[in-house]
Simulated scan of single mutants.
Amino acid sequence: MSRPLAGKKILVTRAHPQGEGFVLKLKGLGAEPLHIPLIKFQRCWTDKTEDILTNLHDYSWVFITSFNGVKFFFEWLEEFKVQLPSCLKWAAVGSKTEKALHEYDVQASFVPESYHAQAMQAEFLSKNRNPGKVLFVRGNLSKNVLPEAFSHQGIPFDSLTVYDTLLVKEVKNLGEMLPEMDALTFTSPSTVKAFIEAVDVKSARYVPCFCIGSSTAKAAEAAGFQSIYVPHEFTVDGMIEIIIDYFQKEGKLHERP
């Protein structure tokens, strides 16, 4: 069995439970992951939560852009004992979100070819000029790319925040473990923010830093990291591919001619 990351110590900052799957994949490749979740999630109530969820028949499409969006949205539906209208269509940002919908017996009608909000809005609007009223399900730190696109196109929509992203304040021994790390991984700008609040980033600025997407990479760059890598596909599997590629190339750099 190939173990291309044998012995590599890799920091995983992703929250539970998604971080656990990342850790298992790294272990399967021979790595020695250190899982220290730097963010956590909690269900969020707003003054329009109940009104929107009990009037889902007003919408044609529901946009969901994360696993957590699916999880907490359906928790609220269960809370209010809401039955989903059969006419609703669903847009999921990527395969993981689509798979999460499947767990609730919901089939996504639209998944973009590239897994990020910019591609999602461009591809969706090119295929759906008059989609009807849209419900955008989000977390408190979600970007406004989609709402701004809907506004610009004159598409009626509502946004519903169903969860909050919270930074983990107490992170024990992370600073002491950093000198041993061969790589750092970040799966959101929030994980970068939590990291730099927990430790002195100067002690890790030259450690290879693997980011799940462009917005996370921008946060890492602003924080002072010097070696930043982003996969073509903004997924954990894409991150793993570039981590493997990095260490294979690094090994070749140290081979004798």
Rank of each mutant, 00 (worst) to 15 (best):
G69D: 01
E79G: 01
K71N: 05
S86L: 11
S86Y: 05
W76Q: 11
K81C: 12
E78P: 08
K81W: 04
E79F: 14
L77I: 13
F73C: 05
S66T: 11
T65W: 03
E75F: 10
A92K: 10
W90M: 00
L77S: 10
E75T: 11
S86T: 13
G69H: 09
V93M: 01
C87I: 04
A91K: 02
F67N: 12
I64V: 15
I64S: 06
W76H: 15
L84S: 10
G94C: 02
L77T: 09
W76S: 09
W76R: 13
K89W: 00
V70M: 06
S86Q: 14
K71T: 13
G94H: 07
W76K: 15
F74P: 04
I64C: 11
L88F: 05
P85S: 03
L77Y: 10
N68T: 06
C87N: 15
F74R: 04
F67D: 02
E75P: 05
L77N: 09
I64E: 00
K81M: 06
G94N: 07
A92L: 01
F74I: 07
L88S: 11
I64T: 12
A91D: 04
F67T: 13
E79N: 13
E75L: 13
A92G: 06
K71L: 02
E75G: 09
V70W: 10
G94Q: 07
V82I: 15
L77F: 10
L88G: 12
F73Q: 07
V93N: 10
F74C: 09
F72Q: 01
E75R: 14
A91S: 14
A92I: 00
F80Q: 00
A92P: 01
T65M: 11
E79I: 00
